[in-house]
């Protein structure tokens, strides 16, 4: 996750327009109140709060995945846009490069 986010941040540092999409179990990465330190891990979730200072504000979650997991946006760390699978697909289609994790 940390190394994946490094790619996301670097893309912004190279002035690329970044669109972040969370779908499927990926949504769990955005859950609030993660306490990684109980496993002696660094809390990588906090870096999501830094996205805005790197001008990464286009962050979407997939509506169907949210519903299937009974997660609402107020349980997430950061403000996100909720979009349907179909809308997100259309946006990804326009990307020059797509990275998945």
């Amino acid at each position: 996750m940390q190394e994946f986010l490094d790619i996301v941040l670097m893309a912004s540092a190279f002035d690329q327009r970044v669109v972040l999409v969370f779908e499927g179990d990926g949504i769990y990465a955005l859950m609030k109140d993660q306490q990684a330190e109980v496993l002696d891990l660094k809390d990588n979730s906090l870096i999501f709060n830094a996205l805005s200072i790197y001008d990464i504000n286009d962050i979407s979650v997939e509506k169907e995945s949210m519903q299937a997991r009974s997660i609402s946006v107020d349980q997430l760390l950061i403000p996100v846009i909720t979009s349907s699978r179909h809308e997100l697909k259309q946006r990804l289609q326009l990307a020059d490069q797509v990275f998945s994790l």
């Binding site: 670097m10 190279f14 690329q16």
Partner: peptide, 10 residues
Amino acid sequence: GLGLLMEALI
């Protein structure tokens, strides 16, 4: 560094 990945992507 990752800069070279970005360069390749672009």
